[in-house]
């Protein structure tokens, strides 16, 4: 397929001074849906954090959406994150403003100026996650699943080349997890690349796809048996 959006070569991932993962070799191409699984504490989150610049990559090579993680400078991090859409386990919405203002903040922060374009873009992404009518609400007035959908909508705002989802269903009940998963699948079908960390194996079985596993300080690809 086309050139990889994410490519790690012999990378070592550190959490502080502790080596979490070593010799990581990963490639994600455009349009992929990739799972990252592993028990808690095996380094999934550190792996994700390294990808969006919250942890530095000191060893090995790393390229993500045209940015070189090894030489990534502090001032470039915001611009890297604009090309990524990050979805968190704990949603991380701005709790002091409404959904619309949450999304508006992101647009303004990433350089949008035209008011009508911003409004229509917000409408568009809310429509994609099926939350059009909730724009005026505050995050705390929404359920967990709804908040996560808003977070996904937020991740979509700038047409990211890669969506990083760090345990997006970790805080949700199984039914809601599936709803959120459906949204992600839908987005993936529209051509967005998604890397999703999870420990929810039920989802893997239901929506099989390329899977990476973190274990014993290493990341390797899991060959999936076809379910059923």
């Amino acid at each position: 397929m086309s050139s990889p959006i994410l490519k790690l070569k012999d990378a070592s991932i550190y959490q502080g001074d502790n080596l979490v993962l070593s010799n990581v070799n990963v490639e994600v191409s455009k349009g992929d849906f990739v799972y990252l699984i592993g028990k808690t504490g095996t380094g999934k989150s550190s792996f994700m954090k390294t990808l969006y610049g919250d942890l530095p990559l000191n060893q090995g090579e790393g390229h993500i959406v045209d940015f070189d993680l090894k030489t990534l400078k502090e001032k470039d991090i915001p611009y890297l994150r604009r090309k990524l859409g990050v979805v968190f386990q704990d949603f991380k919405l701005l709790i002091d403003r409404t959904i619309n203002d949450n999304l508006l903040f992101v647009l303004k922060a990433t350089g949008w100026k035209d008011k009508t374009k911003m409004t229509s873009r917000i409408e568009e992404v809310l429509n994609k996650v099926g939350m059009t009518s909730k724009g005026f609400k505050y995050p705390h007035e929404l359920s967990g699943g709804e908040q996560q959908r808003i977070a996904i909508a937020r991740a979509l705002l700038n047409n990211p080349e890669l969506i990083l989802a760090d345990e997006p269903t970790g805080n949700l009940d199984p039914q809601t997890s599936i709803e959120v998963m459906e949204v992600l699948q839908e987005i993936n079908k529209n051509g967005n690349t998604i890397l999703m960390a999870t420990h929810d194996y039920a989802l893997l079985l239901k929506y099989p796809s390329k899977t990476l596993k973190c274990d014993n300080n290493a990341v390797y690809e899991v060959v999936q048996r076809k379910s059923q």
Partner: peptide, 8 residues
């Protein structure tokens, strides 16, 4: 959070 979504 603001930093996470790409704000400078």
């Amino acid at each position: 959070t603001m930093q996470m979504v790409g704000a400078t």
